[in-house]
Amino acid sequence: MATTRPAPVHERAHKPFPVPALVAMACTGFIVIMTETLPAGLLPQLAAGLDVSEGSAGQLVSAYAIGTVLAAIPAITLTRGIRRKPLLLTGLLGFLVANAVTAIAPSLAIALVARFVAGAFSGLLWGMLAGYARRIAAPEHAGRALAIAMTGTPIALSVGTPLGAWLGSTVGWRWSFAAMSLLSVAVMICAKFLVPDAPGQTARTRAPLNRVLGISGVATILAVVFVWMLAHNLLYTYIASYLQQTHLGLRPDLTLLVFGVAALAGIWFTGVFIDRALRGLTMASVVLFIAAGALLVAAQQSTAFTLVAVVLWGLAFGGAATQLQTAMGEAAGENGDAANAMLTTSFNLAIFAGGAVGAVVVEGVGASALPIGMIALAFMALVTVGLGRRAAFPAGR
């Protein structure tokens, strides 16, 4: 009986690794995160410019987060069948307009609306970027592709936000938001020419959201996302209060710079190992998180040990989003975009909870107790990852 021989390895088509496209996606993530965090470094200028209190100006951050939480799942549900490249360009256009309106906003009300819209487009982009980045690379390099696409986050946190705050204090806060609009234009042009298109999800493979949530492993990953990111945001949100109350003499901006540089190293490690050791890498990151918290508890009067703890914290956090989104993409399969929209919602709910719970701790027992909460929550995440060895974080991955 005649058989068909497989083509030799050298004759098979190899999908080139799309570095330029992934860099454009990383720039998109940079815009999303920097737009989210920019008001935090400009509160006095925003309050003066809009003639409101700093507390009222701080609601510009809340409006963005609310937009993300409310829009992520509906936006991805409604756009699952749309081709990815036009959707990416639409999301960037949304940021261009929202930041431009914020830059010229004559009142707090208009600025809040613009920030809510920006948050809604954030939910759209975060819901589709992970799947898009994995889709344009060969399957065996999907995790590394996602790691590169996620580098915009730590760069925005460590460099972008301080730079935006400096620009705002030098030439005015409106120019900071105008600069974000101009950056959106540049990234749109790059994406237009560098990012390959990918099809949306076919109608026959689109599972209803309740069925996506019921896919084996999805709920477990969402639980890990919430408790792990709550552990992170509990301290990250109140890092200035922590440094002040522990009398360490460390400036928050320099501390966050150290954190951001370490986070970049964490993403590099993740990119190297994620395609062959996802479970081990995730567990190692959570363990490192616990070690950082323990070091902060044990050495609250030592600047040197605190900096070591911040480096461990950054290393652990840097690849966390990539690890969790990769796990979600593999668990949910063709419904990965819808599942990642749920992940985005869980992530932002953890940001909300971190601010609320952290405020209670800081005003109650004091900021020095925050690392204890960080350890407890990270331990819960570690146990949940361990229990998810069958579907969420399978052994051998």
Score class of each variant (00 low, 15 high):
270 T>S: 06
272 V>S: 14
274 I>M: 15
275 D>G: 12
278 L>D: 04
279 R>K: 05
279 R>H: 09
281 L>N: 08
281 L>K: 02
282 T>M: 14
283 M>F: 14
285 S>W: 05
285 S>P: 09
289 F>D: 06
289 F>P: 06
290 I>S: 07
290 I>W: 13
291 A>G: 07
292 A>K: 08
292 A>N: 08
292 A>L: 07
294 A>N: 00
296 L>Q: 07
297 V>I: 07
297 V>S: 06
298 A>T: 13
299 A>Q: 13
302 S>H: 04
302 S>W: 06
303 T>A: 13
303 T>C: 08
304 A>L: 12
304 A>C: 01
306 T>I: 04
308 V>D: 00
310 V>M: 13
311 V>L: 02
312 L>R: 01
313 W>E: 03
315 L>M: 11
317 F>R: 06
318 G>I: 01
320 A>E: 08
322 T>N: 01
322 T>F: 00
323 Q>N: 12
323 Q>S: 11
325 Q>R: 00
327 A>G: 10
328 M>Q: 02
328 M>S: 04
329 G>P: 00
331 A>N: 04
332 A>Q: 01
333 G>W: 03
334 E>S: 09
335 N>I: 06
335 N>V: 02
337 D>G: 13
338 A>D: 07
343 L>H: 15
343 L>Y: 13
344 T>N: 00
344 T>Q: 01
345 T>A: 10
345 T>Q: 10
345 T>M: 08
346 S>A: 14
346 S>G: 10
347 F>P: 00
347 F>N: 01
347 F>G: 00
348 N>Y: 02
349 L>T: 02
349 L>Y: 07
350 A>Y: 03
351 I>K: 04
353 A>Y: 03
354 G>P: 04
355 G>W: 09
356 A>Q: 15
358 G>N: 04
359 A>V: 13
360 V>Y: 14
362 V>N: 08
363 E>N: 15
363 E>D: 14
365 V>L: 05
365 V>A: 12
365 V>Y: 12
368 S>E: 14
368 S>N: 13
370 L>H: 06
370 L>W: 13
370 L>S: 12
370 L>Q: 09
371 P>C: 04
